[in-house]
Computed example of a mutant assay.
Amino acid sequence: MERNNPVDEVDARVEENGVLRGPVDWVFPAWMIYIEDKTRKIAETFPLAEEEKRALLGFGDVMKNLLQRAHEQAKAKLASIYDAIDDGNYRLEEGRLYAPDGAWMYVGEEPHIVIEGVDAVAYSPDILKLPREKLELFQLGWEVHEEEGGGGHPVYTTADPSLFLAWAAVRFGELHVAVTRALLLEDGVAVEMRATARSWKKRWTKKEAERLVEKYRKRGVWEPFLTKQLGE
């Protein structure tokens, strides 16, 4: 029987659900497959200088390294927690379940384990080459969605690799990227990624951004509305 192409399988999952989820030994490699495939295809098809292509592929390599490290940590913690539960040798304290070796998971409304110390600085090149005015319209839509502000810089957290790359495309430059959590969902594990765009400053509050998006929509300017809808 012919095996499915892993890229096609991951693409289908992203297209169907956005958030990749599944067994821990599937979901982290799936993120790596998606990032590697999309950065390679962008480098091959977009009109980028050789230096920009190298930077984009280097960005993909940094992401894959982070995901590999996070995979190893998540797998070890989950195995320890599973054994503790199976043996009945655990303790509950302030919404956390602790294994004897100190590994823990949050057991509240959004069960998860925290990924610690898996972060790096990466450089994402400008792949869209948009005029500044057009670029800011797309950025405006992200500010309405779930973009936060950390130290005045835009911060974005997602478990959807396609949204992560779409956000990075308009917040290019120096990014501080971290794998922050493994979300424990009913249908598997999901990977949470968090990035801070150090090359940009937040320009609007969420209320200001919402007002501007609606203003532009009434004028028939759809770029902010598009990126706002992407994240919903």
Rank of each mutant, 00 (worst) to 15 (best):
V27N: 04
V27C: 06
F28S: 04
F28R: 03
P29T: 01
P29A: 09
P29M: 03
A30Q: 01
Y34D: 01
E36F: 08
T39A: 03
R40G: 00
K41T: 13
K41H: 13
I42S: 07
E44F: 02
T45I: 10
T45S: 13
P47N: 11
E52T: 07
E52P: 06
K53V: 10
K53R: 15
K53L: 08
A55V: 11
A55F: 02
F59P: 00
D61E: 14
D61Q: 13
D61N: 12
L66F: 04
L67P: 05
Q68P: 00
R69N: 14
A70W: 04
A70F: 01
A70S: 11
H71S: 10
Q73E: 14
A74L: 03
A74G: 02
A74W: 05
L78Q: 02
A79D: 14
A79V: 13
A79Y: 07
S80W: 04
Y82N: 10
D83Y: 10
A84C: 06
N89T: 11
Y90A: 02
Y90C: 04
R91S: 14
L92C: 04
E93L: 02
G95R: 00
G95A: 07
G95E: 06
G95M: 05
R96L: 15
R96Y: 15
R96C: 03
R96A: 10
L97E: 01
Y98R: 06
A99I: 03
A99V: 04
D101K: 06
M105K: 05
Y106E: 12
V107C: 08
G108F: 11
G108S: 09
E109C: 10
E109N: 12
E109W: 10
P111L: 03
H112P: 07
H112T: 01
V114F: 06
V114Q: 08
I115H: 05
E116M: 08
V118L: 01
D119C: 00
D119E: 15
A120Q: 00
A122G: 09
A122H: 01
Y123R: 09
Y123D: 04
S124K: 10
S124Y: 15
P125N: 11
D126W: 09
I127G: 01
L128K: 12
K129N: 14
K129H: 15
K134N: 11
L135A: 09
L135Y: 07
L135G: 03
L135Q: 08
L140W: 02
L140K: 00
L140N: 06
L140F: 09
L140C: 07
G141S: 05
V144W: 03
H145R: 13
E146W: 13
E148F: 12
G150I: 15
G150K: 14
G151S: 12
G152M: 05
G152H: 11
V155C: 09
Y156H: 12
T158E: 02
T158Q: 01
